[in-house]
């Protein structure tokens, strides 16, 4: 049985259709990342699952039970907020114990202590326990906030961009750690982010959300390599995917000014939007010329900006490749890496 199931869930907030007809299932141990830009409806989705918003229509099942009209307290899910983490006037220990002391839970004091200690150990924050929350650093706060979620051992974690406000190094550290933690706790996670790298690295499956609709829901690999639409393709990958308007003739795809760029299937449309990832562009072996406009070194690879057949194309090539500005190259893209959407 799926841990969470949404069927046709819609929610309007004022003039904005925050969610429209959202349907998906979350497996019992699954780590599902919802990816989307600001305003896509990610937070509304989490709040609806948590019970802080009531859906206008649709079915919302937790463990097979329809909970759309139930109070948040009855749902036994844990939500980590993006911009709120802790009660500033309470200590870390009090913050961690707070969810356990909810009247409906009726836990013995010893059990509360035990669980707080367990969570603190797991997140390596034992030495912070007696500290007032307002004295913590951003990273420590977020650890405690996640601690607040795990002490209850809820049936589902909802994470609203928990790493967004942290610096890059800490973010990567916690990413690995939290992925591992979720696996160990065997609890499903619905994780929301606008960071594609985060989505691709953490998720079992990625749901791409835009204007309240799920555009694609699949494994990170499929979503990255076989996006169903240019909109999805654009949300993943850095540098972003190249999207060029092309025409087809006997020789294959032709760039806006007529140069050939790669071969095309015979049944492809005559006019199309061609997408290919920068790392799939090779700088030699092609049949038309391009000029290097810019080279940006990123350590292991370099991003080369090309002017090619009337279009600007990004190529990501290993740093070992010798390339300079104004140099002429003959780029090419293998046909299997080309994504084609009819225009």
């Amino acid at each position: 049985m799926s841990a969470l199931e949404l069927r046709g869930v819609s929610k309007r907030l004022g003039a904005v259709q925050a969610l429209s007809d959202v349907s998906f299932e979350l497996g019992a141990h699954e780590f599902l990342v919802v990816l989307g830009p600001t305003g896509a409806g990610k937070t509304t989705l989490l709040r609806t699952v948590a019970g802080l918003e009531t859906p206008d229509s649709g079915v919302l099942r937790l463990g097979g039970v329809d909970v759309a009209q139930r109070a948040p307290a009855e749902r036994d899910v844990a939500l980590v907020f993006q911009n709120f983490s802790l009660y500033p006037s309470k200590t870390v220990r009090e913050n961690l114990a707070f969810p356990l002391l909810a009247p409906g839970r009726r836990l013995a004091a010893a059990e509360v202590d035990e669980r707080v200690r367990w969570a603190a150990q797991l997140l390596r924050i034992e030495r912070l326990l007696e500290r007032p929350a307002r004295q913590l650093s951003g990273g420590e706060m977020q650890r405690v906030a996640i601690g607040r979620a795990i002490v209850r051992r809820p049936r589902l974690f909802l994470m609203d961009e928990p790493l967004t406000n942290l610096d890059a190094k800490l973010r990567e550290e916690l990413r690995v750690e939290l992925r591992e933690l979720a696996r160990r706790l065997e609890t499903p996670v619905l994780w929301v982010t606008h960071d594609a790298a985060e989505a691709l690295s953490m998720a079992d499956r990625v749901a791409v959300l835009s204007h309240g609709r799920i555009l694609q829901l699949d494994t990170p690999r499929t979503v990255y390599l076989r996006p169903v639409s240019p909109l999805v393709a654009r949300q993943l990958g850095s540098p972003p995917i190249n999207l060029i308007e092309v025409r087809r003739d006997e020789a294959g795809w032709r760039l806006p000014s007529g140069e050939p760029c790669c071969s095309a299937a015979g049944d492809a449309p005559r006019e199309a939007l061609l997408g290919f990832r920068p790392e799939h562009v090779r700088l030699e072996g092609g049949s038309s010329d391009a000029v290097v406009e810019l080279v940006e070194h990123l350590g292991p690879q370099q991003v080369v900006v090309l002017r090619w057949g009337g279009a600007t194309v990004h190529a990501a090539v290993p740093s070992s490749v010798d390339v300079a500005v104004h140099q002429r190259v003959r780029p090419t893209v293998a046909a299997e890496h080309c994504l084609v959407w009819p225009r």
Binding site: L52, F84, R148, R152
Partner: peptide, 12 residues
């Protein structure tokens, strides 16, 4: 969010 966190945590 102060109250919402408490609501999700099981408080009325």
């Amino acid at each position: 969010a102060f109250e919402e966190a408490a609501l999700v945590d099981g408080y009325s």
